[in-house]
Amino acid sequence: MVKNRNEAEIAILTAAKTIFSVKGKDGATMQEIANEAGINKALLHYYFRNKDLLFEEVFFDAVKKFSPILKHAIAQEVDLYQKIQQICEAYITMAIENPFVPVFVLSEVNKQPEIFIQKMFHGDLPDFPKLAAQINKEVSLGNIKPIQPQHLILNMMSMCVFPFVFKPIFIVGMQADKQLFDQLMLERIKTVPQFIIDSIKK
């Protein structure tokens, strides 16, 4: 039983994340979220007027938790291989816990890209230029194979994020199920950074 406003909002956001993770924004209904939260639909609408506002709240709550982890992984002073491992782990873990995030970013980012990205990171974007400089330095020292930093960064991002966008096609096309997909994603926390590292290692 929900006792106060703060408890109600926590219950709603927790329930909404659960439903959105399974059905996405378009497939979820406010009634399902209300049922999951253990409240009536009228109370749900009292706190969140519509599904779009609720989804945005859940989305930015997930990004708010992920953003500092990514920024730290990129900014810290560690060797490139360790940094690749930590960036890939941060992205894939975030997407496993919040599978609605990559799909929503893909659908929204091209509408008003600068505004959307600034809002995601509160104006403090991850320091990708610093990562690019570190890659260039490792190339110049002969520690890794020659590669444009932009390509290496794109390789990491695409291998970490795209499988979650591709999920419905993968499940149908491979005649797989959600459990197999989830297991593969957990395995990719280790296999993706290793694949990236092996591709640049001399």
Rank of each mutant, 00 (worst) to 15 (best):
K202D: 10
L70H: 00
T93M: 02
L152A: 02
K23F: 01
G27E: 11
V2S: 15
F164N: 11
L13I: 09
I147W: 03
I74V: 11
I135Y: 10
K111Q: 15
I87C: 07
R188E: 10
E9Y: 05
T18C: 02
H72T: 02
I153V: 00
E57F: 06
Y46V: 07
V105M: 01
Q85L: 10
N35S: 14
F164Y: 12
N6H: 11
L44S: 12
G27A: 14
Q179I: 07
E97P: 00
A75R: 14
I171V: 04
K145F: 01
D52R: 00
G38V: 13
Q148E: 07
K51W: 04
A73I: 04
E138D: 13
L125A: 12
D52T: 10
A132Y: 09
G27L: 06
R5D: 08
D79C: 13
V2K: 14
H45V: 15
T191A: 12
M159D: 03
L180I: 12
E56N: 12
K201H: 15
I117K: 11
V22M: 09
N35Q: 10
T29D: 02
I10F: 04
P146S: 15
A132K: 13
R188G: 02
A62N: 06
E36T: 13
D52I: 05
F166V: 02
K3E: 04
V63T: 12
L131G: 08
V192D: 05
K137C: 00
V139Y: 11
L125F: 07
F166L: 12
L70A: 04
P193L: 10
A42G: 09
I92G: 04
L80M: 13
V109L: 05
Q179M: 03
F100Q: 11
V165W: 07
I153N: 06
A176K: 09
V165M: 06
A28C: 03
E9Q: 10
L186R: 14
I96W: 01
F195R: 14
V109A: 10
F128H: 03
V109H: 02
N143V: 04
T29W: 03
C160M: 04
M1H: 15
Y81I: 01
G27D: 04
P113Y: 13
K178R: 13
K41G: 09
Q112T: 00
K64S: 02
A90E: 06
D124L: 03
I74T: 12
V161M: 00
M174P: 03
P102K: 07
E138Y: 12
H151P: 00
T18W: 01
K65L: 03
K137M: 11
G142P: 02
D182P: 04
P129D: 03
Q112R: 15
K71T: 04
L152R: 09
M185N: 00
M185E: 08
M120Y: 00
F20W: 09
F66C: 02
N143D: 12
I96H: 07
E56M: 13
E57L: 09
G123Y: 00
K65W: 01
Q150R: 09
F20R: 11
G27Y: 09
E97T: 08
P149N: 04
K137A: 14
